[in-house]
Design a binder for these strands. Sequence first.
RNA 1: GUUCUAAUAGCUCAGUUGGAUAGAGCGUUAGCCUCCGAAGCUAAAGGUCAGGAGUUCGAAUCUCCUUUAGAACACCA
Length: 560
Amino acid sequence: MITNKIEKEIEIVLNELEMPLEGVAVTISNRKDLCDYQFDGVFKLAKLYHKNPMEIGSQIVEKLKNNQDYQKVEILPPGFINFTLSDSCINNELNNMLQNEKYNIKMPAKETIVIDYGGPNIAKPLHVGHLRSAIVGEAIKRMLKYMGHNVISDVHLGDYGLQIGQVIYGLQQENISLQDITLEDLERIYPQMSKLCKEDENVKTICATITKDLQDGNEEYQTYFKVIKELSQSDIKRIYDYLDVSFDLWNGESDAYPYITKVTEELEAKHLLKDSEGAKIVEVSKDSDSKEIPPLIYQKSNGAYLYGTTDLGTIKQRSIDYQPDRILYVTDRRQALHFESVFRVCNLLGYKEKFEHLGFGTVNGPDGKPFKTRAGNTPKLEELFEETKQTFLNSSEKNQGMNESDLDILVNAIIKFADLQNNREKDYIFDIKKFSQTTGKTGPYILYTYLRVNKILTQENKQSETLNKIIYNKEDRDLRLKIIELESALKYAVDTRLPSLLANYLYELCVNINAFYEKNHINNLDDVNKKENWLILLALSNNIIKDMLDLLSIKIPERM
RNA sequence: GUUCUAAUAGCUCAGUUGGAUAGAGCGUUAGCCUCCGAAGCUAAAGGUCAGGAGUUCGAAUCUCCUUUAGAACACCA
């Protein structure tokens, strides 16, 4: 990475000047009119060694001036050191990217990572609230895999909680026999019963009892459970297939049950389980807490287990099956406190895994309130896809002739890029109009850029894979500099688990490619060297687009 | 009530350990197809970074206060 290279050179110079500095950091310039990269540690040095910043800066610049990597190194008041890279330095970097695996990106130490996302409840169709977990989780999974980790994804179905008791009760109330249960029944009964339980304490108790009996192995309820799960799961799979989101494991809360006894034994051995108002809890608060962390409720007073309990069982299961170094959860941010409790219990039990809760913001409608349709329901994902598709078809006549598979690819690209460019942690406004947009900073823009360039590449032949030392003009240079930024952009996105950073880099790359494309025409070029170099450059750009789009789970259509 | 999180252009959002002139897209206005795909490109207009104080050579970014909005807070997930 070019920043590391410059940092090392600065460190050497500082040692020569006998002014060592910890954490020398070079960053991409925010004044592209002045330089490519900048170093602003001079101010720290000035404070540390009680000298004038400009004076120190000049000494550093003097020592770096003759380095072949820089076309220009200068100090500007009040004390910024500005680096402008030489053409040969830029092209060396690019050639390294061309000639090595995965663009010469340095891979981190390999870890085994379980990533838990999606998290749909059975008996409930996927709605917009599930979209972010699926899209963001899938992108994080793919990024981690790209960086060489051993990644195991788990959809972690919500299949054994109170909602199942509610649905079973509802089915029985309506006398729907096992073989007649339909998906529509489930989708109708679930919200009905959920509402009823809030209104009627008695109904809630009955549903809770059914849930408890189910968990204890009641045969009748088990049969219901299997039918409901089968029906619901195949529908959930269908939607994830459409989104090109896939899971290695289709485990759920119910699969964690055999492991709960193990966790219970461990908790009892350490005397961590306490009785409180009839329930069993684990105290997790610490003296150092600035806020109160409520205890984890391990077992309800009626004996049933809860979300936290199954999460602990699941962790035990994963630990036995895969010995992960790290477990990631991609869920709504509102569950932060829940995960804090669970992770603390794991800590008390001495578990070695590292845990991360990657929360995301709430999906709101254009009015800033939780997303609802006009009928007052949360819209199903399927309806959203259909609406996006129709809007896309109507937006231009040329779309009407698109084949079905390219059309689905476009719908995916539109929805995913619109979601992914937002910061994961923030709430966001879900506006169907915005999500159907195809101009500007959108998925189609990226795809369009790729296809336009790809046409040139299929028409022309290049002979080699190595760039010479020449850069021909500003648009050319800007594009090359942006390509060099790939490694830092990707690493930053992976480290922070923020796919939005990768999406934004990809967009910026495309902006540079489009500027290049407008300015520099490649066909009819007499200068064969120039043509050859530009073809190599464009091929590299397009390979990056393709690979990064794949990390964001966006495919490329044949035509658009 | 307590504790968190947020507030940046008309709208939706970026903004890497504090750095130089706060950036995009949409929308608005003005240009660019005899030339590789105009879903594109080039410009213009648009900001008291909620308000106030502090720390610092330097603050959208850190601290404190105020206002506004959202969320979490023991047997839902």
